[in-house]
């Protein structure tokens, strides 16, 4: 890992902490997928990875590449912007689909308590 030695010590620590935070939030979010018990509870969990998890990881990449290359490297930010725009859309569609299927299959009035 020779290229990372080009980072000054403070930047190395900062990037390390950001990477750990990002991965930690993503991991807890996915852990929620396994641990929570029904679909409507589980649907909340992956949002952790796509909000703060992505934010910390993108911040780490921006800091790391910008210092290594000596100029601001910004395309990584596009990933963050894109994910914040698309995650709500996918989740909303998915919840609507789930609600529709529950209504069709069970024939009882949703929402269940």
């Amino acid at each position: 890992m020779n290229h990372l030695d080009g980072l000054p010590p403070w930047a190395a620590v900062l990037v390390g902490v950001l990477v750990l935070l990002g991965a930690g939030f993503a991991f807890i979010g996915s852990l929620g997928l396994v641990r929570l018990r029904d679909f409507y509870k589980r649907v909340h969990a992956p949002t952790l990875g796509s909000t703060l998890g992505t934010f910390f990881m993108v911040a780490a990449s921006v800091v790391c590449f910008s210092i290594l290359q000596g100029r601001p490297v910004l395309p990584v930010i596009l990933i963050g912007v894109f994910l914040t725009l698309t995650t709500p859309i996918t989740l909303m569609l998915l919840v609507r689909a789930a609600l529709y299927r529950h209504r069709v299959e069970d024939g009882r009035q949703m929402p269940p308590r």
Binding site: H44, A45, V95, R96
Partner: peptide
């Protein structure tokens, strides 16, 4: 977008005739 990107709440349905929002 605000409600759904906040973990813990999610937008489920919006009845545009009665203007009632349902969230989980």
């Amino acid at each position: 977008c605000i409600i759904t990107s906040t973990p813990g709440t999610i937008w489920v349905d919006h009845d545009s005739r009665r203007n009632v929002l349902m969230i989980h």
